[in-house]
């Protein structure tokens, strides 16, 4: 093989490697869930979410998931929410899943919300029995943790396909938090809720768009 041919072979192999890496990166970035803007409300925004025991559609019909409602009332399967900076965000979560229980009861306390409290079906609470938690909505870098009470195991009319309507068994959790400076804050669930994965921590717990996401403060 001549030197020229060798150089050409190396150049081609390098170019191919770069193209493959670029495809991987583009694919990774394109797989990021879309962003849904929270509805405007006096003094800030209104963020409406729901959690479902099983999404009910491809690619993972049996995965547990969050969904978000846009200002027009339409539900979206994404976990990237956009809210305004330095303002109040009023959150309502319709919780359709049954309880799994917190592995670390430390997260059973409501932290970082206005008044360090939430309402559960209209009742104000500052902590939840850790065994009753189905998920948490936690933004660690903002110090926010809210445990979400699951519906009873024997509840009638349980929902298994998203989006779930209010006519089906659910608990309603509301809380308000104040955003600070603009940034992209990750949020996650601290309940090992990924049933059928080892120790409940695989699949949806490791995938933005399901049990993790970003709060885009802009």
């Amino acid at each position: 093989m001549s030197v020229g041919a060798k150089a050409l072979a190396i150049a081609c192999a390098t170019a191919l490697a770069i193209v493959l890496v670029a495809i991987y990166i583009v694919d990774f970035l394109a797989a990021t869930p879309s962003t849904v803007k929270a509805a405007s409300a006096p003094g800030g925004a209104r963020l409406t979410l729901q959690t479902v025991a099983s999404y009910g559609h491809s690619p993972h019909p049996d995965w547990v998931s969050y969904l978000v409602q846009d200002g027009g009332g339409k539900w979206h399967h994404t976990t990237v929410f956009k809210v305004p900076a330095h303002s109040l965000v009023r959150v309502t979560i319709y919780q359709y899943d049954t309880a799994t229980g917190l592995r670390n009861p430390f997260w059973s306390q409501v932290r970082g919300t206005v008044g360090n409290s939430m309402t559960v079906d209209g009742k104000t609470m500052n902590a939840l029995d850790p065994d009753l938690a189905s998920h948490t909505f936690a933004i660690p870098d903002m110090g926010i943790t809210v445990p979400l009470k699951g519906v009873a195991d024997d509840a009638k009319n349980q929902c298994s396909v998203a989006p779930c309507p209010l006519s089906m068994a659910h608990t309603t959790i509301t809380f308000t938090f104040r955003t600070g400076k603009p940034g992209k804050y990750r949020w996650q669930c601290f309940v090992p809720c990924a049933a059928s994965f080892i120790f409940g921590n695989g699949g949806p717990m490791q995938s933005p768009g399901w049990m993790d996401g970003y709060l885009v403060v802009a």
């Binding site: 229980g101 009861p105 430390f106 306390q109 902590a127 850790p130 065994d131 090992p192 994965f197 120790f199």
Partner: peptide, 25 residues
């Protein structure tokens, strides 16, 4: 500050695994 959570914690132990695995997994 953490009193509400402290009430719900398991007794102090050198490790907590595999309890509580609870129902998931």
């Amino acid at each position: 500050v953490n009193a509400p959570a402290t009430k719900t914690l398991p007794p102090y132990s050198t490790h907590y695994f595999p309890d509580p695995i609870r129902r998931a997994g």
